[in-house]
């Protein structure tokens, strides 16, 4: 069940660079939100920008929902200027969710903003002591390391330019890691750009490790009506906003 509700902004602040963290209060939505789901925010009462902005749920604490977002265009720019006390028209929680796999050690793989939903997931999985691999272009784009550590996760970082952690892609770091450990009892969760998710799915297939990937696509409605965000899968075209965001990596035709 999803709701269209008013959410009150409690906090909205820059956490470095173009990255912002917003806390909103929306008890009806926070109560039922699952990790991997998103909310669709109406940012303006005017017609520019017209469409809602889908933003993944970064974490939930009681009636509070946390959102981590990057300012990439007009919509997110307007969002970043919202003040505590203002209200947002919100639809959520939307989409399916990550499924928890018992008796397997989770490895979470994040690329860039892909960390956003994985913090919520790590929180849910904390008893299983997940390992988190965070990759980005440079040190400045490495996010949420402290949050993951606070939850109790071990964190490894990778940057394209080597400014922090492993020099290279996060998926290469994953590959290296899997060549040194027993991977038979692992399960992968990944969120990030499509090429990264494709690389994760290739690794998962070779090593025969179950992997769930959270996809991102252009959305118009976010509720499964417009068919704008579909992805080609072995079971036909699927709506990223409805049958996703989370898919078994083997299901996707990349």
């Amino acid at each position: 069940m999803a709701y269209q509700a008013k959410a009150k902004i409690l906090k909205n602040s820059c956490v470095g660079g173009n990255y912002f963290k917003m806390e909103i209060s929306c008890p009806r939505v926070s109560k039922s939100a699952l990790s991997g789901q998103f909310v669709n925010l109406k940012i303006s009462d005017r017609f520019i920008p017209l469409l809602r902005r889908p933003i993944s749920i970064h974490n939930v604490r009681g009636s509070k929902i946390e959102l981590l977002y990057e300012v990439v265009g007009k919509g997110t720019e307007l969002l970043s200027r919202k003040k505590a006390g203002e209200e947002l028209d919100l639809i959520g929680p939307l989409g399916n969710s990550f499924s928890y796999v018992a008796k397997r050690t989770p490895i979470l793989v994040a690329g860039g903003m892909g960390v956003a939903p994985l913090v919520f997931l790590a929180d849910k999985l904390k008893k299983q002591k997940p390992l988190v691999l965070v990759g980005a272009k440079t040190k400045k784009q490495i996010l949420c390391v402290k949050e993951f550590e606070k939850i109790g996760c071990a964190v490894k970082t990778a940057t394209d330019d080597g400014s922090v952690g492993f020099k290279g892609r996060v998926t290469d770091m994953l590959k290296n890691l899997l060549s040194t450990i027993d991977y038979r009892q692992l399960t992968l969760y990944a969120c990030g750009p499509k090429p990264m998710l494709k690389a994760v799915s290739v690794i998962a297939k070779i090593k025969n490790i179950p992997a769930q990937v959270s996809l991102e696509e252009h959305m118009a409605c976010g509720i499964g009506a417009c068919l704008g965000c579909v992805v080609n899968t072995k079971k036909g075209m699927k709506r990223v906003c409805k049958e996703g965001l989370v898919f078994d990596s083997g299901e996707i035709i990349w």
Binding site: L50, A220, L227, M237
Partner: peptide, 23 residues
């Protein structure tokens, strides 16, 4: 019908474009 390849939608000033392709 499987419809058209993506991206299928984009926002424009006070509007949007779509090419779903009758999926």
């Amino acid at each position: 019908r499987k419809g058209n390849p993506g991206p299928r939608t984009c926002e424009t000033p006070a509007g949007m474009l779509n090419s779903i392709g009758l999926e």
